[in-house]
Structure formats: structure tokens, C-alpha cells
Design a protein around this nucleic acid. Sequence first.
DNA 1: GAGGGTCTGACAAGCGGTTGCCACCCCAGC
DNA 2: GCTGGGGTGGCAACCGCTTGTCAGACCCTC
Lengths: 352, 352
Amino acid sequence: MTDQPRTPSPTIYDVAKVAGVAPSTVSRAFARPGRVNADTAARIREAAEQLGYRANPIARALSTSKTRMIALMVSDVSNPFYSELIRGAELAAREQEFVVLLSDAQESGEVERETLERVLPVVEGIVIGSSRMSELALRTIAKQIPLVILNHAMPDVPSVVTDNRAGMRAAVTHLRDLGHTSVTYVAGPDASWTNGARWRAMRDAARELGLQTRRVGPVAPTFEGGLGIGEAVLAEPVTAVITYNDLVAAGIVASARMAGVRVPADLSVIGFDDILISRLITPPLTTVAAPIRFMGATAVRNLLAMTQGAKPTSGQAYVLPVKLKVRGSTGQRSRKRTSPALGTTSVSGSAS
Amino acid sequence: MTDQPRTPSPTIYDVAKVAGVAPSTVSRAFARPGRVNADTAARIREAAEQLGYRANPIARALSTSKTRMIALMVSDVSNPFYSELIRGAELAAREQEFVVLLSDAQESGEVERETLERVLPVVEGIVIGSSRMSELALRTIAKQIPLVILNHAMPDVPSVVTDNRAGMRAAVTHLRDLGHTSVTYVAGPDASWTNGARWRAMRDAARELGLQTRRVGPVAPTFEGGLGIGEAVLAEPVTAVITYNDLVAAGIVASARMAGVRVPADLSVIGFDDILISRLITPPLTTVAAPIRFMGATAVRNLLAMTQGAKPTSGQAYVLPVKLKVRGSTGQRSRKRTSPALGTTSVSGSAS
DNA sequence: GAGGGTCTGACAAGCGGTTGCCACCCCAGC
DNA sequence: GCTGGGGTGGCAACCGCTTGTCAGACCCTC
């Protein structure tokens, strides 16, 4: 009930005065419970209570460098994939009373770098979801501060990725089982490591399973990205496409509908990630589901372990399992859209 | 355990030594450009460059209390509505080189309060998107620190809301024009101010335009929430529903489809907000579009103005305009699902 | 040439905790 | 009674930067 708008918060000095002890004793009463006499501690606690004392995290951080904050950098906050990721990260951080500094890199390595530089002195560790920076830059940062990167496996920086290879193989196998003999990959951003990994995985799986491949893009990893390239995709006699992510897949599906191409009768579409939207569109999307929230949580838990002295998991990346969810967007290969040329020149590989 | 040679960052003392000046001069060289001689400043800048000096925001904050951080509290990060909001807030914060501390209240007033308490000493201001706390609690916080709340108009706390009344009126008018004589509201969380505002607005608009009203819920503001209540909604002979938000609407649409009820032939559905998903589902959702990203940005800009001494916009809330987007989920009232009882007891109001 | 301004840079006192080190008290143990 | 040691609390030096204050240098002006 003060009339003063800006009452400065009480400090340990105030508490010390009220409790009749030295400031350092107050500090210890909170930080090192056993260090001070129980009675004294009680008295201090009472004084603190009465004054409404709250430790100032900034002051504490100045001498200890423990801010209990971590930075989370994503390339686009409004991408539903990241929403889920953020959720998982937030939860895991909260578990250990850490707080998350969120930054949006706006799909730009430059912004990413700059922002990171700004927050670096304030946080105890950094999680980067899908970096657009160079590996060199990432390595440099990892040298200065605990860092975990997502969706980008690097030998010398702790990372969490999904099993793109297995996921892609499941997807391609599924298509082959439906009779498809070729598949088109709609690529995401060139700067995305995941994009490269998925493309290579698809090519390899297709080769092994005897399907032809084609690649289009890159496109922005958004619904609009998929929508925009739809026409180009359909210009060729494709019967199946796999996309960089679900958003792009949704765009392709929408584009196909506008062009009068039926999904899945004429065209099968498979996405990646399994965001909520995949279940909501018509037809619901067949997709390679990633444990997105768990990824975020895993990254943060690892990061926090590192800040507490754990050795960074050198060498291997954490590879999280994925699962092909077959829904309505894939079906038997359409005769109609199969060009003889593509259909017959199928590479060696045997069926089944 | 860890003998990491974590090289400490250079400080102004290091720079001062190299440049041959006092630390305070270094500080001023950066903070108050005109205050030091241009030559000296150049020398300092050079030394800083050479050492790779970066000001430590924490140390700075300790004496100035300027952390250049704001807190953003949302009730569920993974809700697409908030993703957009966060995006807008992030952008606006970045404009002024502020950084965002994101917290997820997990739809709980308790978590919200607790978290806020934790971050309060660290940030210069707070934006709360859809609080689940009491007005008293909000007022208490507003007294301690600049605060802007979203989706909750309060006379004594600066707030940003959408024009629910106008939006709802447009929605109801649209339904009436399609021949509907009654409308059901599917309610969101009781703790949501917006929910109350929308329901009241609908009731008022319906009364004025001569439609009967019904209310069901509350449900969680998610797709699952809508899906779960679909059956209950359809148990009665409704021809039109308006939902708390788009996610719930999408759930209703999905539920209707499963029940064999056609949208919009048998049932018209209108959502609120216009998130991406609304355009993607089949049929695309008629919805009251809010400038979500702009809301986030507006809140942050106002907040930052306050931190720079601007008087909080006492009294009125910022009311942002909305727009009814008519898409495929609304249509002419269906004879089939109209109960004689409801259909004929339409209230006095004349048409148009 | 003295008085008075304007510039510049240095000094030192914070900001609010943390922590190494020391002093003192008290109680055994010999 | 003296000594040793554990238990407690205080002192003071930071952590890195900001800022009020002041003194010296330099430049005018009369």
C-alpha cells in the first residue's frame, strides 16, 4: 500500500538488517542451507518473508554466470512443426526451472547469427532447431557455450535428429507396394540439412527398391511453397510425390485439387513430420511421423545436462525413431498419369 | 570435474588497458558517443574489435535494470493462434533490439502466476496472451511492471483485443442471410475472457436479428475439443454453429463428417481467428479473421513504449478490427436438420 | 595575463549477490 | 588449564558496467 510507484525491491541488505545478521549470512541462508545455524536461518527466512524479499537473478548471475536461461532458436516460429518443438523444449526447461529465450531466425542465417551473438552472454546454453548457418559457425558457437542442434547431424556438435533414412525407406517401400514405379521429391530450403538428408535417403531407397526419382524445388517449407510448385510437379506424369515436410505436402494436395488431379486416385502424396494439419486436410495425409515434442524435450534435457558438467555426447547424434502413418493421401498407382517412358524404364531392382 | 578452459570474455577493463584509457571511458565510448573525443573513441573501438569485446548485458542490467528482455506468456504454445501471435511479438521486439522470454502457461492460472513471478525481476515488461489469472492478479502485476494483456479488456490495464462484437454480428448476420433461424455457440474455456465476450456478443446479435440461441461446452480450445463435443452438438436439430475458435470449428466439421452430416449442406460452421488450418480443411472454414500477428506486434510496441516512459493507455483497450471471411463451411439453411419447433419459434425480429 | 567556459578523461561509488578466508565461541580431550 | 577443532557468522573482495563528480587541459575574452 505504498504511494510510491517504484518501490525498489528489498535486498539481502534489508533482510540482513531486519534479521540482525550480515548480508553474507542471508545469502548463505538461502544458498547453502546447512551452512548457517537453524535458528538464524529461521530468523532470516522470517525477515525475508515479512519484507517480501526475492533474490535478484541478475545480481546472482553477475557473479555466478548462472542465469537459468537457455536460448531456443527456430527458423520460423509460426511453422507448426516448431510450435510443437517449442512446446517440448519449454516443458523440459520448466522441469529444471529454466526459462526459455525464444528467437525467430526468419529463415535467415544472418539473423540467426546476429541474434545468437546477442543472447549468448545471457544464457547458459543454446538449442538451435534447424539452423541455417554454416557448420563452421555452429562449431564456433559450440566452442563457447553448451549447444545442441536439432535436425542437423554433425560429428562434433551434440545433435538430435530423426531417423530420416528409415522413415524415407518406409515411405518409398509403401509407394512401391502400391505399384508406383517412380517418385518425385519436392525439396525444401537448400540451407536445411534435413532437406539434404531426406533427398539422399529417398534416392538411395528408390534405387534399392527399383523406383525412378525426380527432384523439384527448392521451395519455402510452407503451404504456399507447396501450392506454388504444384503446377510444375504435375507438369510431368508423376504418380507419387514425397515432400520435404507436411506443409509443402498440403500445398501440393491443394494444388492438385485445383488442377483436377485426384488424390490419391491420380496422385499419391507423402509428407514428413505429422503435424496436426496432416490429419485435418482432405484426404488426410500419409506422413512420416516424428516425435516432435519429444525432440524438443530431448534437446533441452541434453543441453541442461551439459550445463551441469556432462560431457557433450561426442560423436553420435541422437537419432529418434519415426513411424510411417498411412492415411488417405496415398493409393494404388494410377494408370492414367503414368507415362510409358517413366513407367517402363524402371531400374533393375526386383519387386518385393 | 570439468577443467574446461572456458576463456572468460574480455571486459571493459581489458579494452581499457589495450587502448590506454580508463574503463569508464570505454563504457562511455559505447554508451554516449559524443561524450568522448572522436580519436579516443576510435582507438577504443579498435581495441575492442581486436579483443572481440562484447558488452555483458547482465552486468549492464545490474546497475541500470535495463535487460532489453520482455516476457511473453501464452496459454498454449502449440496452438496455432499463439504461434502467429508470438511471431508478431518477436518481430516487434526485434525492431527495438529486445529479446523475448517465452513461457507456456499450459492453460493454468497457477503455472502462469508462478512463472510470471520468476521472470518478473528479469524483464522490462510483460505481455500476456489470454490470461487464465484473475483480474486482481493481473492488476497486481500491472502495478509492479509494464504489462499489456491480449484478448482481455480491463479498464485499468492496457490491453489489445479484437472487435468481437462486430465480428460476431457479421457472423450472425451472415447466417441469417442464409436463412438460419437459430445458432449454437460452442464455448471455449470458462477462464477465457474472449469466450465470454464472444458468447455475449452472439446472444446480443442473435436477439437483435431474431435468431434463437443455444450454448454448449465449455470445451478445450483445440481440435480435439471440437471433435469431442460434436456429437452433443448434433444431437439437437441445429443448422448453424459458431465456435470459440477455428480449432474447435475444425473439430466440429470433422465430427459432422463422421456422423454423416454434410457441411455446409446440412450444417453451417463458423470459426474465429482465421488460422492457417481454416483454409486447409475441407470445406474451408468461414471464419471471423483476426489480425493475429498484428495483435502481437501491437501489444509489444505498446509495451515498449511504456517501458520508455509512455503513460499506459488508461481506460480504453486497443480494439483491432476483424473481418468475416466467407468460405465453404456456411450455406443455405438446411430443411432437413431444422426441427419444426426451433424453426418456427423464431423470435419477432423481421428479416433485413 | 587572469578569470571563466568547454572538453575530456579518471576516480570511485554503486547495482545485489557470492564466496574465500578469518575470527570467535564452545566443547572436548588430555 | 590449555589446546584443538568443528560450527557460525562477518569482512571484504569480487562479478562487469554505469554514472556523478571532479580536475586538468585548452581556448577565449577582456
